[in-house]
Design a protein around this nucleic acid. Sequence first.
DNA 1: GCTCGATCATGATT
DNA 2: CAATCATGATCGAG
Length: 701
Amino acid sequence: MPRHSNSAPSAANDDTVLDAKPIRTLSPMFPAPSGCTTISSSSAPPLVYVTPYTTFSSGSMPGHPAHFTPGMFPAFANSPTVVPHLATSQSDRASPVTPVPMSVSNGAAHVELNSNGPLHATPLSASFQAPPTMATPLNVVGNSFTSASGRKIKQPLHLSGYSIADSDKEDSDSKRSLRKKPKKTPIRDIVLLPPPQDPREAVEMILMTFDAIRRRVLQMDETKDTGKRPDLRASGLMMSSDMRANKGKRIGPVPGIEIGDIFYFRMELCLVGLHAPSMGGIDYMITTHDNQDDPVAVSVVSAGGYENDDDDVDVLVYSGQGGNSKDDQKLERGNLALERSLHRANHIRVIRGAKDLNVVNGRIYVYDGLYKVHESWVEKGKSGFKVFKYKFIREPGQPDGISVWKMTQKWIENPSSRGRVILPDISSGAENVPVCLVNDVDNEKGPSHFQYTTKVKYLRPISSAKTLQGCTCLSVCLPDDKNCSCADHNGGKLPYSSSGFLICRKRIIYECNACCQCTLNCRNRVTQKGVRLHFEIFRTKDRGWGLRSWDPIRAGTFLCEYTGEVIDEINTNDHGEEDDYIFQTSHVDDKTLKWNYGPELLGEPSTETASEVFKSFPITISAKNMGNISRFMNHSCSPNVFWQPVQHDHCDEGYPHIMFFAIKHIPPMTELTYDYGTSGLVFGRSKKCLCESPKCRGYFG
DNA sequence: GCTCGATCATGATT
DNA sequence: CAATCATGATCGAG
């Protein structure tokens, strides 16, 4: 039961209108009886929400300094042309084919209505008020707003290498010179990628780019004392380039974000429009109601920083902000917004923090869907000061969120608690971690027989003119060691972060080998140590068996190797059936290419062009008769896994190890898929694709 | 040598 | 603007 179907909209996304039935009084906060709430009839207005996919009124979209053209970015040279879908309504623009900046194309303009008339959504610090006409959507993303907000812009890292000839006239010098505030980073120096039409694609691209920059900054900064916080460096660069999705606050679901999505940094939540404050736990917006400002909460992050109990997955008791155990909390800011949300009964997004021991800081954020505040009260905290408490209850009918995470955590602690198990370890102890075989779907008893192997079986002894060479690093290879020949071999830098995440896709990664002086603890030995995650082979609805993980997986994490028999040619069996377990390096998809993006945004020239990096290798592997968990990984045109050639025990560069890594953060229990690619003109070998991706090519293999 | 908490300094956003 | 359920580094305990 994968929760993330590529095509099926979640129940929450259909939720365009807030239900008006919960009626509550404006129960006074002071004094409040501890632990109880007053419910009585009320005239509290229902809050109706219109999805942000309303059309833009002509001219409401401000001029945007960032232009891109298809093909400007190398890897998009053969991508479909970006459709300038606002061109018709933007006929007064200088250029009729100005593509839409990402943050605007995702539809940040929205309006809220209630039975009493329009309820205008106004950003907190917006200095303008839109005319209160019902028909006009209020655009909260205007450039004038963002520029006038006066936020401190950090100069980005050196940006060069690309230029955009087309400079905007709207943001003229005269306009700019009037402003005293620090001006926004000139975006024209950065090439923005075309915003994908699909909101999910847009969100994924933002997160992927963020993490690519973050990893690269981390790698660069390791040798210096300066420059901490790669997450902030990456997000600052992206924010100043307006590379973000779903800008502008909104109530309810965020396009492209699905329940269960996981995040590793608060800034990721900000970049995709899920939760704006970089530290604050409560995000709220000012609405107007009866000509009065009325704050309502839109999202909260429950990261366990306050004294909360978290036993029930559908209930969240959230503490108000402020006080800091040194003072009474006050009914202001977020606390006031939550109180107002109680009465307005609007949906609030909840992002739950959870412990993940695979991560250094041990924290992960899970989007858990929409909740409503059902009660509030005041109690004395441990320090004796007043603390606001808000009881959130999860709206029914939504896909499982944090409950999936809690379930898999239990299984990891005690694998026997996993039900519907056919085989507790399909590898029979060959892998470091047992691999469950399960079937939640039908009565199939398991895949047909094969020999489980963690090693590749070569046709003949691997021959190479060169012999293995090793580094002379003692103990472990260090990032600043100029004498490390292995770092040298990888282009001067160690290819993995200190915690073992791949930093950038390369044609081949060279890990330390048997000839190296360093120990097995060396960070340049990742894939050679084998499987680290809790995988399970599971029965899919309609695609046979598949692979997924109990652990949440961070982008860049090594998953497993494609093992099997190296073969010369693809054989059919006695019955003329094709070998369904072939791996070839024939095709690399867009998303894998994009994985390397980011360093370009840092001003680094692309060192290797796509054609060099992704030139195919002669190796063909069949996992039909023998193999490992990789043989169960299905194809998808929107994959979450890619392959990366790695060398660590021989030098024959035509026959590298094929290692799989996570493209993006992958929630537990999400099916792992990679792009099988197309073997070109081999008719008859193509199979109908069932991946349900909006970008599905329709066939593969 | 580790892991785990507590504490601290430095933060970006609205 | 100042407040904020971040981060990562550092230090000490176990």
